[in-house]
Design a protein around this nucleic acid. Structure first.
Lengths: 219, 219
DNA sequence: GTCGATTTGTTCTCGCGTTCACAAACTCCT
DNA sequence: AGGAGTTTGTGAACGCGAGAACAAATCGAC
């Protein structure tokens, strides 16, 4: 409908679609690894675990990158999705809280390969300072402002105990971080304009337990 | 409307509500730790980070456990939610894949305190067998069937690389596991009746990156 | 015992997301 | 060149969830 200028691609993509784009991207990467050049919406939907109509509608928000009667060019679509999400550029990331989970996150190769670079590991516990994890030295939490400023960090990861999460969040927001991924099992409050996503391991298990309990009670 | 018999409490709770119940439960636990006996829907909603109308509607699916003009009894509501979710009972859990993430999961105290007991750690890599993590010995993946049967395990956690996830899933389903929490960055296919929840670290970051990119492009 | 204040439980409306179904567009074969 | 076969992109219907608003119920004061 609307005329679309060169790189001014999309207006607003529904949140549900945004959450699925990374899944499509991964599926496309897998296809590319298998030297597959072209795929239909049906094939890609299968690989991504979604309905093909939903996939097509999702992709239509980005533009018309398919060819009717043929399908999608894997490499081309892959690039378009990556550009839309923003993973074609480099995102510096700070991780606060280097416990068991922080360790695992720092070592997670999936970040590196998707444009996320861990520029600093911070912890309040001084006995951990100087320790090197995944090639990065653990530094005092007080260094946060300096690091965020010098590297232009916009994304912070909280992997602390619940009690520290709100304080860490406040400090992050205070020095200009506008996106937070929170692994601490607590609700954190942030001002408007700051995005928070929450990953809670035990909540996921509790949801499974609920359904499991229902299955057992077929009375 | 419907007459409600003794322990036959609810019919079907919306999925969105089920996902929030654990959040309410945690908020209630925090209140209880502060020796608070009673709370209004407004207070609890604030602690849980949701709208109070939504909270009341969610709780109404469980029954009428509040008192008008007063609020909710913290301990009583806490018990009711815990019973509804199923965390009053003990859930044996198996974790497959003891890499960085598997280590972190095995050590995560939030599982133990919510009724989940890690009964076994399995890994395909023989060099890891015998290693003790969080008080549990790492055993060969081939022991899965025996362990699931002897402990009555219904919930499995996959923390392997992407390539192994589908195989592990198939084996789990094959020996009777009906709920899977998948941390591997891949889509797994399971038969009807098996629940899968997926936690993907890099996808969460990519979603944040998308919004971050939008913030930067205010052009 | 009655009145006012308070808070729950529920009804209603609205918007988002999912899915179906089909027209438009492209390829290939003859 | 034309027709058959495919596959995309999208309009329309449907169902679920969020939030506002209100009636019902309880407590406390007098």
């Amino acid at each position: 409908m609307t005329a679309r200028s060169s790189s001014e691609s999309t207006r607003d993509i529904p949140e549900a679609t945004v959450a699925r784009l990374p899944v499509y991207l991964r599926a496309l990467n897998t296809l590319a690894d298998d030297a597959i050049r072209t795929c239909s919406s049906e094939e890609l939907a299968l690989a991504a675990g979604v309905n093909s109509a939903k996939l097509r509608k999702d992709l239509s928000y980005l533009g018309s990158y398919g060819t009717r009667g043929v399908g999608y060019d894997v490499d081309y679509l892959r690039y378009q999705i990556a550009r839309e999400i923003g993973v074609t550029q480099d995102w510096p990331v700070v991780i606060v809280g280097i416990g068991n989970l922080g360790h695992a996150l720092a070592n997670y190769s999936g970040f590196r390969s998707r444009g996320f670079r861990v520029v600093a590991l911070l912890d309040a516990d001084e006995t951990r300072h100087g320790e090197v994890v995944a090639g990065v030295e653990v530094r005092p939490f007080g260094d946060l402002e300096e690091i965020v400023e010098s590297h232009g960090v916009a994304i912070g990861v909280i992997a602390t105990p619940a009690g520290a999460a709100q304080d860490v969040s406040d400090r992050m927001v205070g020095c200009g971080i506008t996106s937070i991924l929170n692994f601490a099992p607590s609700v954190i409050a942030v001002p408007d304009g700051v995005d928070v996503r929450k990953v809670d391991l035990s909540i996921e298990l509790q949801i499974l337990a609920y359904h499991e309990q229902r299955k057992a009670n077929i009375s």
